[in-house]
Design a protein around this nucleic acid. Structure first.
Length: 110
DNA sequence: GGTCTGACCAGGG
DNA sequence: ACCCTGGCCAGAC
């Protein structure tokens, strides 16, 4: 997770789901969030990971969410009145080619 | 084993 | 475009 997030350039954003998909497990978006919550490595630009609606997720610590927003604004990312990233579709980093998330295609059970 | 809890997500209304 | 719902999955009890 950390390696993937570190590939997101300054001023761009990605989503929990995109990171999960890139890692080969499209349905573990939540776990990506947990990994970031446990993050201690300052080199990882965690602020660039937002949710699929283009907004900062704030379940849990609101303080963290505010910091995240300020950090992004400091990189030139702006937000609209509803807290959505302006031009989200364009700022969403592609990693070259992120496949679309197959919502209901479950991997075989073990 | 069962149950609950999330930095989540897509689809339907 | 917004809100709700059901689905997901891994970790902690």
């Amino acid at each position: 997770v950390y390696d993937v997030v570190r590939r997101v350039p300054r001023g761009r954003v990605t989503t929990y789901g995109d990171v999960a998909t890139l890692l080969g497990s499209p349905r573990v978006a939540r776990q990506v969030g947990y990994a970031l919550a446990a993050l201690r490595d300052a080199r990882v630009p965690w602020q660039r990971v937002i949710n699929a609606q283009g907004a900062v997720s704030f379940r849990g610590d609101v303080t963290r969410a505010e910091l995240q927003r300020r950090k992004l604004e400091g990189e030139g990312v702006s937000f609209d009145a509803r807290g959505r990233v302006v031009d989200f579709a364009r700022l969403r980093f592609s990693f070259g080619r992120v496949q679309h998330m197959p919502a209901r295609a479950r991997a075989p059970r073990r």
